[in-house]
Simulated assay, not measured.
Amino acid sequence: MTREISRPRLLSLESVPPSALVLTGIVSVQAGAGIAKQLFEELPPNAVVLLRLFTSALVLGFLARKALRTVWRDHSARSLTLAVGYGLTLALMNFCIYQSFSRIPLGVAVTIEFLGPLTVAVISSRRAWDLLWVALAATGVVLLAKGGGALDAVGIGFALLAGVGWGAYILLGQAVGKDFPGMTGLAIGSLIGTLVMLPMGIASGGSALLDPRLLLLGMAVGVLSSLIPYSLELDALRRMPARVFGILMSLEPAVAALVGLIVLGELLSLRQWLAIGCVIVACVGSTRGQKDPIEAPEA
């Protein structure tokens, strides 16, 4: 479950343990999510999604500018169609998870969303033993839905849709990664995603999108949730087995719950923490049996 992007060599990270890079990337993603949710008080989720995708498209487009100049000439219609699908899935994934964030606690939303990559990992392994992890993850989701107070059903639905989007994004990301070098595919996907979200983001955000403070905060979400983790995690993958990387990434639901608690004051019940633990164990169990890395960015 890696994030496919070439890291700009702005600084050397070779002296930093790869596990520390992965954990820093996880914290960065969820810190960005925490800031995004705080922004919902002044900007609707669609506008925040637009700012996040626009930031990614702007920076990645600049870094991949040479390859983008000839992308139409150098790639087949099939490859370009895959890249467009990649971008549409990116927009869907971000749209759904931010809608979920606006309705249910951060840790709960991310835990449910993790069912997407878990499903892809289980299907790709084709081991009967992995049915155990599916059952454990399903138990976790049931506990989340029924424990610790009422959860917004629409928020749960959006988190499930985000998980579907993440799973599709993984599969499309593998194909796009083979057809486009370095960060080119992700740059195209971010641009397509920005164009898709542009009408909804402007319609919902209105004149608030012209506020310099909100613009800067929205762009900070893009940097924290996309650019920093992509860079750190790719560097880590160069120096650690993909299996270990996947196990570390399985900690993300717990980190999301902690960020929700510390930054947003979102208290979870013991039952909900147990549910998050079930999904984490399921993700770790499915990852341990993987021989090949599954490459794709997260929301």
Rank of each mutant, 00 (worst) to 15 (best):
L216N: 10
P199A: 12
L217E: 06
R213T: 14
V196D: 00
M200E: 00
L214T: 10
G205A: 07
A220C: 10
L209V: 14
L209T: 11
L209D: 07
I202T: 09
V223W: 03
G222L: 05
L198H: 01
G218W: 06
L215R: 08
S207D: 15
L216A: 15
A203R: 00
G201Y: 09
P212G: 09
V223A: 02
L210A: 15
L210K: 13
M219Q: 13
I202D: 08
G218L: 02
P199G: 10
G205Q: 10
L215Y: 07
I202C: 03
V223H: 08
P212F: 02
L215V: 15
L216T: 13
R213E: 14
M200W: 01
P199Y: 05
G218C: 04
A220P: 02
L224T: 01
L209P: 05
M219Y: 13
G206F: 14
L198S: 03
D211C: 06
V196Q: 03
G206L: 10
V196Y: 04
P212D: 12
V221Q: 09
G218P: 04
G218Q: 07
L209F: 07
D211N: 11
L216E: 12
G201L: 02
A220E: 04
D211V: 07
M197T: 03
P199C: 10
L214R: 13
S207Q: 15
G222H: 03
